[in-house]
Computed example of a mutant assay.
Amino acid sequence: MDSYIRRLQKSMDFIQKKVNTEMLELLPADITPPQIMMLYQLYKLGLCKLSQLADRLQVKPSSITVMIDRLEKAGFVERLADPNDRRIVLVQLTDKGLDIIHQTVELREKVMTPLFSDLPEDQLIALVETFEKITKKYEDEL
């Protein structure tokens, strides 16, 4: 079992490094990978409190505030007052933020497609189903 885990880890590390390197080369210069991750979580959450975003990303709320400040300044997100409680600040993607999410999804597909293009369809299906099975037990934690 140990040898399979080592082999799997080596392959996963290689794929992650390759995808990250290529994505960094293709991303617009005005955004960083951690900012993309935050925008993606905002995309999934929709209009939300900063504390919800901090929980989702498993970081301190003060860290979220700093990153949201930068993203707001760049025009990717906007802050809104909660109509029910003015003490609560909500955040959501702007059209520019949504556009960068769409660009990133297209770039990821462009980068990842060649990695799996030589796999026969049945092997690709088996690979995807195996990873889905492994991750299913952790989905509720996110």
Rank of each mutant, 00 (worst) to 15 (best):
D2Q: 11
S3Y: 13
Y4K: 13
Y4D: 13
I5D: 08
I5M: 04
R6P: 07
R6W: 11
R7E: 15
R7D: 15
Q9F: 03
S11G: 12
S11C: 02
M12N: 04
M12Q: 08
D13Q: 06
D13C: 01
F14I: 10
I15K: 14
I15V: 15
Q16S: 09
K17G: 07
K18Y: 06
K18I: 15
N20M: 04
N20C: 01
E22P: 01
E22Q: 14
M23L: 15
L24N: 08
E25I: 00
E25S: 04
E25M: 03
L27S: 05
L27H: 03
P28V: 08
P28D: 05
D30N: 11
P33W: 01
Q35K: 12
Q35R: 09
Q35Y: 09
I36T: 00
M37Q: 10
M38L: 06
M38W: 03
L39S: 06
L39Q: 07
L39G: 04
K44C: 06
G46H: 04
G46K: 07
L47D: 04
L47C: 06
C48P: 06
L50D: 08
S51W: 01
D55H: 05
R56G: 03
Q58H: 10
V59D: 02
K60T: 13
P61T: 13
P61R: 15
P61S: 13
S63T: 05
T65I: 08
V66I: 15
V66W: 00
R70S: 14
R70D: 15
R70N: 14
L71V: 12
K73M: 07
K73H: 10
K73T: 15
A74M: 12
A74Q: 14
A74T: 10
G75T: 11
G75R: 12
F76Y: 07
F76A: 07
V77Q: 04
E78L: 00
E78T: 03
E78C: 00
L80F: 08
L80N: 08
A81M: 06
P83V: 03
N84T: 00
N84L: 11
D85Q: 04
D85M: 07
I88L: 12
L90S: 13
L90W: 09
T94F: 05
G97L: 09
G97R: 08
I100Y: 01
I101M: 09
H102T: 11
Q103W: 08
T104I: 10
T104E: 09
T104M: 09
V105S: 12
E106V: 15
E109M: 12
E109A: 13
K110V: 00
M112Q: 09
T113G: 00
P114V: 05
L115K: 03
F116R: 02
F116E: 05
S117Q: 12
S117F: 03
D118E: 05
L119H: 08
L119R: 02
P120Q: 01
P120L: 06
D122R: 00
D122W: 10
Q123K: 01
Q123R: 00
I125K: 11
I125T: 15
A126S: 13
A126T: 10
L127S: 07
V128I: 15
V128N: 07
V128R: 04
V128W: 05
F131N: 14
E132T: 10
E132V: 05
K133C: 06
K133N: 03
I134Q: 01
K136P: 05
K136F: 09
K137L: 06
Y138I: 01
Y138S: 13
D140F: 07
E141C: 02
E141T: 14
L142Y: 09
L142V: 15
